[in-house]
């Protein structure tokens, strides 16, 4: 994978994710999140996971974010008013704990994973192709695949049930 491209995509991804969390206007947050997911798809392509990259753009940046956009427009959400000191003290402690946890996890992982990712074309890899992923999905993971379809059906029925005023 190309190192320069990786750092550009990673920087844009982290920057737009921070923008999502820090911005007061939900509309801007959604657009920034679409941008973040597009950058993440770029990272997937660099990591030679082509099928997942396309799915990321289609499912996340396309379908899911359009759903968010519709809900924000439907609810007519106004930008938050600044309210300093409204965050309870214990939440800061939760935040510190989570940061500590992630750092410890990274240290632990870093001991085992010292290597670097193979450069593009260095080592012919076809694990990210539609063929390889599809083969795994329809042989080894056939039952989970069917269950995922069932779960989507249940979610569809549940969404209609929740959103409809009168059944």
């Amino acid at each position: 994978m190309s190192a320069a491209l990786f750092y550009i995509f990673a920087g844009l991804l982290l920057g737009s994710a921070l923008f999502v969390v820090l911005n007061r206007n939900p509309m801007y947050s959604i657009v920034a999140l679409v941008f973040a997911f597009a950058n993440l798809a770029g990272l997937y392509f660099l990591l030679e996971a082509y099928f997942i990259g396309v799915l990321q753009v289609l499912v996340y940046a396309g379908a899911i974010m359009v759903l968010f956009l519709f809900v924000v427009m439907l609810l007519n959400v106004q930008p938050d008013q600044p309210q300093l000191g409204v965050v309870p003290l214990e939440r800061w402690w939760y935040g510190v704990l989570v940061i500590l946890f992630v750092v410890l996890l990274l240290i632990l992982v870093g001991r085992g994973a010292q290597g670097s990712l193979p450069a593009a074309g260095d080592e012919a890899s076809s694990i990210g192709s539609v063929r390889a992923v599809g083969e795994a999905l329809f042989t080894k993971y056939l039952l989970p695949f069917e269950i995922a379809g069932l779960m989507l059906t249940v979610a569809l029925v549940g969404t209609v049930f929740l959103a409809k005023r009168r059944i």
């Binding site: 320069a4 999502v20 990272l43 750092v103 994973a113 990712l117």
Partner: peptide, 22 residues
């Protein structure tokens, strides 16, 4: 020039932390 695996995992960790803060 290749990217160490740890850098990708660190990006994932930072992204997770940003999500938790949100």
């Amino acid at each position: 020039m290749v990217v160490p695996l740890m850098h990708v995992i660190t990006v994932a960790g930072l992204l997770f932390t940003i999500g938790v803060m949100g």
